[in-house]
Design a protein around this nucleic acid. Sequence first.
DNA 1: TAAAAGGATGTTAACGTTAACGTAATTTTC
DNA 2: GAAAATTACGTTAACGTTAACATCCTTTTA
Lengths: 351, 351
Amino acid sequence: MKKEHKKYSGRPGRVTATDVAKELGISVMTVSRVLNKKPNVADDTREKVMQTAMRLGYIPNRIARSLVTRKSYTIGVIVPEITHSFFPDVIRGIEEVVYNTGYNLLFIHSAEDESREKKAIQTLEENQVDGILLSMAQTVKKYSFYRKLIENRKPLVFFDRCAKRLGASCVGINDVEMARHMTEHMIHHGYKRIAHLQGSKNVSIGRDRLLGFRKALEENNLTVNEDLIIESDFHEKGGYSAMISLLELPKKMLPRAVVAVNDPAAFGAMQAILEKGYRIPEDIAVVGFSDDVRAPFTPTPLTTVNQRPYDVGCKAAQKLLRHIDNPNERVEYLMIKTEPIIRRSCGCNGT
Amino acid sequence: MKKEHKKYSGRPGRVTATDVAKELGISVMTVSRVLNKKPNVADDTREKVMQTAMRLGYIPNRIARSLVTRKSYTIGVIVPEITHSFFPDVIRGIEEVVYNTGYNLLFIHSAEDESREKKAIQTLEENQVDGILLSMAQTVKKYSFYRKLIENRKPLVFFDRCAKRLGASCVGINDVEMARHMTEHMIHHGYKRIAHLQGSKNVSIGRDRLLGFRKALEENNLTVNEDLIIESDFHEKGGYSAMISLLELPKKMLPRAVVAVNDPAAFGAMQAILEKGYRIPEDIAVVGFSDDVRAPFTPTPLTTVNQRPYDVGCKAAQKLLRHIDNPNERVEYLMIKTEPIIRRSCGCNGT
DNA sequence: TAAAAGGATGTTAACGTTAACGTAATTTTC
DNA sequence: GAAAATTACGTTAACGTTAACATCCTTTTA
């Protein structure tokens, strides 16, 4: 009575647990028990199963497993712009946490587009992800999709760009506080006319940093000049064109300093300033936000805020895993404490 | 006779196609046909199914679907260092191609570590990905894992860091040619003592760029000085320490120019050069490879090669999809043509 | 107008795994 | 030494979907 090995026999059929069981003349269940390291299996059986599984090149099918356990061990990650150096670092942090926990990352790039983000959420749900880590696209206006997720009890943790009061945890940085701090730093330099390149109002960090900016001016008894608050986006282009329009103001209305919503916007602004023949910081000082890899390298190194992306990623992933493991995990708004990085674009003698 | 809606009733059970079918008193199969836009369904039935599916909040379960169709519509992506700005751009390209094809990306970061890469491959296989896009970790020594994948007929396409002759397609750039070109550029500047900060030999781009470097010297009848070829890695640290050890050579043995395996290594080297009080390019010229976002911003803007990461990602994804759709798709080594970006670190008057 | 073709459904089984329960043999307990 | 507990399995059904085939009814064709 010959036994036939199924391995690579004819069609490209994968080796299954059933094949391993048949090979040994035992039940699939015992094989399953061994592979999942469950108790109540004799040592020698365990040994035999491991060996034949190895010999046949058995690879467990997580899809079949997921179907019955109703757990995919997959986490969805939605990022608005992977190209912005903040996000790869966040992903590093996320990866580092999920690595060794057995979870995998299903990654989707929303390209700052609301409809793509919606589609992404739908896709993640179809894939039965156990939870979602999301940083909002800047064009998102409606939160109904988030609400639906939360109603469906799909664990959701926002990072960086958060939607609060929806019942999902958030991991961000102390945006208001740091925007206030950086603006005040400009004020302490003696600058009076301070502009703000504002991020999209749709997004928490856009609103919060604007708030911090206003706070600083008010607390220091400076009038907030609405003409100097101008909507940019989070990228070089937006910063550039916003700055260009500021520079078209009459000479004496020109800002003496610019607080940009983030570093890419600041880079765009710096380029505009230099192109128009002004000096940084002698004519116009600039501060950014997020400590982009390029920040130390700009002609005048950019004063900014270290956004600790790696830590944001870690904390967000950890919180999500806790939500997944415990449906009663408390919804929290975690704030990573960040610090200013003083270089020279603000007028200091930094590195 | 009341009908009960199952939606959100008690336990968190998802709405299934069966629920939709029961609601309408029809068979699941008809529902399945509608949802998959298959023919042979009456228009009004189709309509009714769509509506109740919507009303009940039905979300198709891709996991169950995958199990029976033996297709996951998922592509695995393994990247050695997401933090290196080349890779996020590649991912953008990949995303752009798979977006709208219905495929998803399962993302794993190997952290330049062979064992993590192996584990990643295993994980992707367990998840039944339809194909894998992979850029080798620099510490990878054995190709047996790749061979096993290829034997198992799991479509695999390498990008950037390739292993050829294994039967998997590769998408890279013209490394040898461009390294030769850049080195020759240095020679045309009149530099004689030219050093090479070499990448890991385990990896194609490390070997190929070294080859191009040697070629240029030989073709121009310059002797290759082995002391000036020094192993770095692909990151700032390696470039820095490699350069430091070069700078410890006796004064007259010092290199006049440095060809770095990539930009991060070049940045490290530049830092070392500046710290030791030398000028770039007056004392030591430097060229990099990959056009990192920081390259235009270094104190002396870095001459480098545009690696066209976005195109690499697109091509790799396209090729993989073709391998998935057609098992007889020809194995190819695709080469994206790249161009030098002349700035100032080489001695030119670039931007 | 009978036969053939096609359209709109339903039925059954399967994908590969595990949960829940069942059973026989062995060991423990008092 | 009989009841109870434990161990080492096996059996059945289910997870949610689709492929393949079957059925019934309508329309077309010669």
